[in-house]
Write a protein that binds this DNA or RNA. Sequence first.
DNA 1: CTGAATCCCTGCCGATACTG
DNA 2: CAGTATCGGCAGGGATTCAG
Lengths: 121, 121
Amino acid sequence: MTHQTVSHPGLPDDPYANVTAPTPSCPVEITLAALQGRWTTLVIREFLRGSRTFTDLRHALPMLSDKVLSDRLAHLTEAGVLERHRQPGRPPRVHYALTPRGHRLGPVLQALWDWGSPASG
Amino acid sequence: MTHQTVSHPGLPDDPYANVTAPTPSCPVEITLAALQGRWTTLVIREFLRGSRTFTDLRHALPMLSDKVLSDRLAHLTEAGVLERHRQPGRPPRVHYALTPRGHRLGPVLQALWDWGSPASG
DNA sequence: CTGAATCCCTGCCGATACTG
DNA sequence: CAGTATCGGCAGGGATTCAG
């Protein structure tokens, strides 16, 4: 088998595809870094379902501690998945929302779901 | 917004979608577990390119230590991504190949690549 | 050639307590 | 309500050495 174009366009031909070590600039690493950490995908799922505030998420994921939830929200905001908005007034409310980029994680999670699904062998 | 079917079929309606804690039986967790660990996606990429033996991978990924490479091959074999075949004769050669399930990781890596690619901003 | 065994170091995650 | 501060346990991963 010589070098041929396979059915996965981006992978073999993109310049980043030639890295020989894990580097943060590799697109695959960037995505995995965004999804990295326990609870992260479940938090994203709650946003896809419509959760908006810290308390929403606490009720949806009761086993998740405040500290880790806070870490995840900060991490996902840093990764460009979420936007953070402080609502003025009392009591203080903070509103989180998926960015357009965050919404595009839907197909990614779907691909992960499909491969891991028992029906998919 | 009431409960409606969104454009990501598997996620909201599957029974596993209702987990409220990270569980190994969740399809998303299964896939992330298979891809977990430094160097893992690069090893898979080398198999998609045609690498077959321990030495092939050592040459393709010179910064990867023997121990970690061995760990990754065992882990991917355990996850059903690779098949391990001992070649009879001397010197001992071991042949690895992607399983059909392993080949199906192509679209998954593609989805990860696409989201993380700068062009997809 | 293809790993397995061991050691050490680092970073994640959970629990608890505290703050504007 | 929405976090931050701190501490400790544990597992991941790198280097080195040994084995079939």
